[in-house]
């Protein structure tokens, strides 16, 4: 615990320093409040609107989590399919990789077209953002399974099911978690974008509306909360990773 605290000290100090510079800079340099508001004003605005913000936070978090959950299910299924079928490996896998050259942001309006202005268009955009890292990293995890272990298990009489459950699946877990951590971070961005494209609630909608009204404190408080959400989701994914992979590798981290 002490070690952890002391490891976080430099970064914590740095953040405090930036916060202090922000506060002092905006006061001393006379930057207009609609360009960069004072940090204290941002917090005041956050506090004044705490109930509204909490509601929007919950909406965006819900969209991100729902999309993330569906991506985990779909991405893992796709990875299992790619692993299990030679045809899928030759057709689906390159397609999924190539699909990443399509600018996802450009595709997002199509989701609105298909799923309307309700929550599902936001969830669809989140899936658009998070499916790829999970599917590809999990598929790569399957492929990284040590063939010698597979041979050994076959020599010991393992059936197909054993090979999948006791060799392939555990081998793919580190890759899956790498994908999950990436996906967790960008899921918030997906949800935000979905809300920009049209929505009644959520922090993305809140910041956009505040921006239109030049309420810089409100914009910044929304942005800070979205960043916090991204960090929290990433930490949650890492926590899950450590819980599942604990003791597996030298050092504390899975990968």
């Amino acid at each position: 615990m002490m070690r952890k605290a002391s490891a976080a000290l430099p970064a914590g100090t740095f953040i405090l320093l930036i916060a202090a510079l922000w506060e002092a800079g905006t006061m001393l340099l006379g930057i207009p409040h609609y360009i960069i508001p004072k940090l204290s004003d941002v917090f005041v605005s956050m506090w004044d609107n705490r109930q509204t913000l909490a509601g929007h936070f919950a909406v965006t978090l819900g969209e991100a989590l729902l999309g993330l959950g569906l991506s985990v299910a779909l991405g893992t299924l796709a990875a299992v399919w790619i692993e299990g079928s030679r045809l899928a490996r030759k057709t689906l896998y390159p397609l999924i990789v190539a699909s990443q050259t399509i600018p996802i942001i450009a595709l997002s309006p199509i989701m609105v077209l298909w799923f309307g202005y309700e929550v599902w268009s936001k969830v669809a955009v989140v899936i658009l953002f998070t499916f790829f890292p999970i599917a590809v990293n999990t598929a790569d995890g399957f492929r990284s399974a040590d063939p010698e272990i597979g041979d050994l298990m076959r020599a010991m009489g393992a059936r197909k099911r054993d090979l999948f459950l006791k060799w392939k699946l555990p081998s793919a877990l580190p890759g899956f978690f790498t994908g999950l951590k990436m996906a967790a971070t960008i899921s918030v961005g997906g949800a935000t974008l979905g809300e920009w494209l049209g929505g009644e609630s959520g922090l993305g909608m809140y910041t956009k509306r505040a921006s239109n009204m030049l309420r810089a404190e409100a914009v910044f408080s929304g942005v800070l909360l979205l960043s916090l959400m991204g960090i929290l989701l990433f930490l949650a994914a890492r926590l899950a990773e450590r819980a599942v992979l604990s003791g597996r590798f030298p050092g504390e981290q899975g990968r």
Partner: peptide, 19 residues
């Protein structure tokens, strides 16, 4: 023969996720 012969490969090939 599969499953009836104990095989110890050159590298230990232990499963890193198992105790």
């Amino acid at each position: 023969r599969l499953g009836h012969i104990g095989y110890m490969p050159q590298r230990d090939s232990l499963l890193p996720w198992r105790t």
